[in-house]
Amino acid sequence: MEQILLALGTMAIGVAGCIAYFWGSNVILDRIYPAIGDNAANNIRKSTAIRPWLFLGPALIILGFYLVYPVFNSIILSVYDASSENFVGLDNYIWLFNDGKFLESLRNNMLWLVIVPALSTVFGLLAAALTDRIRWGNIAKSLIFMPMAISFIGASIIWKFIYDYRGEGSEQIGLLNALVVYFGGEPQAWITIPFWNSVFLMIILIWIQTGFAMVILSAALRGIPEETLEAAVLDGANPLQIFFKIKMPQIYGTIAVVWTTITILVLKVFDIVLAMTNGQWGSQVLANYMFDWGFRGADFGKSATIALVIMVLVLPVMVWNVRNARKEA
């Protein structure tokens, strides 16, 4: 309880501090350059030039420290050894590309990158198309969207229970193995089968992300101008043709946004792998491997190098986003 009070207290101090800063800095600015008197015009010009930076200041400082500085610091760390004391040049990079576990992670990440965004988008599109046509569509949407609120680790437990394995002969309490046995198959320890275990982990992320894709694609589908659809109906197009030939081309932009958003998430996937296999049985991914070296292996050089690889993989999406933003601005 006292801890919650501490949190609330700190929060109150933090919020009060923020307000005090914004209010105080504005008052001080107005004192230094008052908008009245001989120099009024000049003062207003000066204070107008400074004020945006007062508003932006805290955000810029925090962004700079938490997101910009680490990128450069990681580059430096990556050319030093485990303890960040001795310069080792490109040794970490050379080690990286000869390391079997790293190559395995890279390969798995590529698989994740292809499968998860693709299937999430397909299922999201399917869910959007279906739920927009039924009366109980809003409830259906809510339920499909729900996994979005569940933590990766919570979702991992939910699915680990589904994939649970008991030796042959005893009753299976995992849904998947129960189904397999019901249809006459042999139960398997799913998450220990190399390659396929990655697929079983991907299913968790697809389950979480489909709702996101559905919500956005559904809005895009509803935003399609009625006229184009009416014209298609008049020309005798059937519902499938309307969907694939008329609707789809009009929402390609949104599909791309959904796809790239999920791509970014996939590159950073960590919790699911940590909780389900911790990279065993050939299921390692970059984010977990980086965590392994940095916080269990205590090798900051190698860890920073792996982090930079993730950064490089993210870069194309970043460039694409930035270019889109500039077009709009």
Binding site: L67, S74, I264, A287, M290, G294, F295, M311, M318, V322
Partner: peptide, 25 residues
């Protein structure tokens, strides 16, 4: 506009990047 674009870019910076530098700091 440069600031705005920078923030869009920062949206996707992987957190993994920031952990060790920040912990050190």
């Amino acid at each position: 506009s440069i600031l705005l674009v920078t923030i869009v870019g920062l949206l996707v910076v992987p957190l993994q990047m920031a952990l060790i530098p920040l912990l050190n700091a």
